[in-house]
Design a protein around this nucleic acid. Structure first.
Lengths: 124, 124
DNA sequence: TCGAACCCTCACATTGATGTGAAGGTCTAC
DNA sequence: GTAGACCTTCACATCAATGTGAGGGTTCGA
């Protein structure tokens, strides 16, 4: 598919799709006219990239962890250098802390909302 | 305490502490000489702000949700407008999705690491 | 009283994720 | 063949979170 369709299906601007490609997060083959040509799995990949970006990860990190996240579990060991492993472990731990922080504060918001509703049931 | 001590205790640059104040995330009283003067709870607040920022929330949102997160559960209802409630609900849901995305991908990284270790136990 | 180590404000620089638009090539339908 | 809707690259703009430094005041200990 071309960039317009991918943009529409992922809710992402064309500009950003080109940016993600520039950052090595997605790849596109090119037609004889120079147009980008995306395959079907790219849709999911873009959605995943968006999710990770929204979760606060920079493209630099996303690029590093993406190879581990491919669906058909095709683990690529050749490039599993010790540095890579260490990076992944560190990032995994950071993600855990991030998620905990989010959930903790989310729960606090939930408690607040519950208290407000009890105080004034008209709110909702 | 003054800004230097707060910076050291929270691992945050003075510049950023002033920025957070400018954004309304923390408050400081002023000494007669104009120096900022922080109280003890500000330490925790700064750490919490850092956590939320790291989790990907913008200062704009953090500022909105902070009042709900105060420790002594002092719920302030006066400003609980319907818009505010809606914002909080939306943000709470976004935080849930963010956390889910993080945990999902974190687990994928974990699986990858486990697979790598099985393949080559020398890696740790 | 002097220097070191603080503090202040102001302002410009940078980085990453984006938006926007210009200048131009391609494809399709009429 | 021409218009409209695509696509290309390039470049400049913006926004939030930061860094950095200038120019200047305050505090404190030797």
């Amino acid at each position: 598919m071309r960039i317009g369709e991918l943009a529409e299906r992922t809710g992402t601007s064309r500009r950003l799709l080109r940016y993600y490609e520039e950052q090595g997060l997605i790849i596109a083959s090119r037609g004889p006219n120079g147009y980008r040509d995306y395959d079907e799995p790219t849709v999911d990949r873009v959605i995943q990239v968006r999710g990770l970006l929204d979760a606060g990860l920079p493209t630099r990190i996303i690029k590093q962890i993406l190879p581990c996240l491919d669906k058909p579990r095709t683990i690529y060991f050749p490039d599993a250098t010790p540095e890579m492993i260490a990076t992944l472990e560190a990032e995994r731990d950071r993600m855990t802390r991030r998620a905990e922080c989010l959930l903790r504060n989310r729960d606090a918001i939930g408690e607040y909302l519950a208290a407000v509703r009890e105080y004034d049931p008209a709110v909702r």
